[in-house]
Each structure stands twice: as structure tokens, then as C-alpha cells.
Design a protein around this nucleic acid. Structure first.
Lengths: 143, 143
DNA sequence: AACAAATAGTTAGCATGCAAATAGTTATGT
DNA sequence: ACATAACTATTTGCATGCTAACTATTTGTT
């Protein structure tokens, strides 16, 4: 396996993405849905702009994903008095169950990815990865 | 920013992907092409199956990408005597120039991502990331 | 040699993912 | 108050990305 930096970033993401979907496809979830469910599990009632930002996808992409999720009864989009241009997104009962399942899968996969790696090495890795993400983040769009 | 492991993996990949494309879109490259050019720069004359594997995409996806790259004169697909079911892919002159440009961009972006991180910390990070990728790789498909 | 199994690539259908253009809503400036 | 600007979500068009089904070729078995 090529050990260049950018290649490992690509591979780790690709393998994680495939594992997540492989574990959740029997629940009827499609590739774009797990990250949205994960985000809503932590920020229920967010507006679409914030969900898109948190999930690192374009708002236009999120529109389609939410339409299918609403069609399957995973989420509801509601308007609020005094702000008719934002749409507030809430998990349904079914959506909350799936969101919890997603959270569980992420924990299991993280445990598998870090198999055989010392606690200290894990901590150092997360810290460095966080620095890297900050280095890549446009200061204008700091979260 | 959320500092969970899977989230940082997703964010680092997403930001890298966007930076790469941002730097290469003026060259007329589309999102799927840089990784293929990078791979061919190191393994010119590969068959499609190996390119797909190296780029972590499905062979069916590669078919479409190569069609557009061939249409733009970046690559050529040739048959070899004695093996008519594989198609061997070669960079053209123009493709080689783009491939070199891609390599340069990757180096610059890696340098930017690792800004302010000690050499020893970088080395440790790569080592851990490599272990993680190995943990996620199906032993059946070891590269 | 004849047939079955494995392999390589393509096609079709669907779901992301993005940029650009659009519509509707809210904020701002004068 | 009015016109303008900014903001939020959607639509459109194109390029991935996947699975499943299919074609063509090669290998393996008998």
C-alpha cells in the first residue's frame, strides 16, 4: 500500500465510508444518510444550512437527502414563527432509533480501526489530526 | 469542531478533496481525475482493474472517468496481444504534464496540512494512520 | 475438444456531490 | 417607506460512486 499522506487520508475515509454503509444498508439507509442522522442526534432541530456545514456537504446536496429521509419518515421539516426562510429539521421516533444505531456503529468501527494501538498513541493521533483539520479550514469559516 | 475520530477522518478527507479540486479545476480536471492521474504517474500502463483498486473506486466508476479522460486526450487505452479482455491505460504527453501538476499540488497541500507540526509528530501520525488503514483492510484483499 | 467457472470491462439505475441560477424571505441603508 | 443587499432553500445539469446485470474473454476441468 502506498504510504503517502494524501493517499492514507483517502484510503482511511473510503474504507470507513464503506464499512459504515455495509453495517447500515440493511436498515434501508443510503450513503448520505448516516452522517445526517449522526448530526441530528447531537443537534436536533437544526436548520439545513447548519446541518450541511456540520456534515461537510453542500446545501443543495442536503435538499435531496432530506427529501428522501422525510419520505421514509426519518425526519420532519418544520417552519418557525418569525423565520420563514429557514427550515428546522427534527428526528422522528423512527429517525431517533436509526440515529442511535448509527452512533453505535461509529463507536464499534472506531474501536476496530484503533485495534492494537496504545491509548497514548490514539490520543496523540487525534490531536495531530485535529491540528491538520484546523490547518485546512478556511479561517473565514471557523466552526 | 467536533473532535470525534470518525468526524475528523471525514473532515480531513473532505477538505483535502476540495483543496485539490480548487487547485486543479482551472486545468479542466474534474473531481475523479486527479487520483487517476496520480496513480498513472506512478504506474503507467496499468490495466483498469488495478487502477480502480489503487484509486479505491469501483471498476464501473472508472469506466466513465477514463472515457472522459480519453475524450480530452489525457490517456489512451490499448489492447495487448494475448490478452484481449484487459485494457492497458497509458498517459499521453498532455496527461503526463497534468499528472506532474497533480503530484506537485499534492506535495504543496500536504505541506500546508502539516504546517506547524514537528517532524517527529508527522512521522508518528503517518505510522498510526497506516496501522489504521491496515486494520480496516479486508485481509482477503491485501495490497 | 467441450463445457463450466472465473475474470475484465461495460451498461443501467439510483443516490450523492458540486456549481450556478432561481425564488422567496429577511436585513440594511438612505 | 423604499430599494438594495444578504440570506436560505431549491432546481438544474453534470460528474462521480455504488450495485446488479450483462458481454466478452480467458482459464480450468474433465
Amino acid at each position: 500500500m502506498d504510504q503517502s499522506f494524501h493517499y492514507l487520508i483517502m484510503v482511511s475515509h473510503s474504507l470507513l465510508q464503506k464499512s459504515v454503509l455495509n453495517a447500515l444498508i440493511q436498515d434501508g439507509l443510503t450513503p448520505g444518510q448516516p452522517k445526517v442522522l449522526d448530526y441530528l442526534g447531537k443537534h436536533d432541530g437544526s436548520i439545513q444550512k447548519d446541518i450541511a456545514h456540520g456534515c461537510q456537504i453542500d446545501p443543495a446536496t442536503l435538499t435531496g437527502i432530506l427529501e428522501r429521509m422525510e419520505g421514509k419518515g426519518l425526519v420532519e421539516r418544520k417552519a418557525k414563527e418569525g423565520n420563514r426562510r429557514s427550515s428546522y429539521v427534527y428526528l422522528t421516533e423512527s429517525g431517533r432509533v436509526k440515529s442511535e444505531k448509527v452512533r453505535q456503529i461509529f463507536l464499534e468501527l472506531e474501536s476496530e480501526m484503533l485495534r492494537g494501538i496504545e491509548q497514548e498513541e490514539q490520543t496523540q493521533f487525534i490531536n495531530t489530526l485535529y491540528k491538520i483539520c484546523c490547518n485546512m479550514t478556511d479561517p473565514e469559516k471557523l466552526q
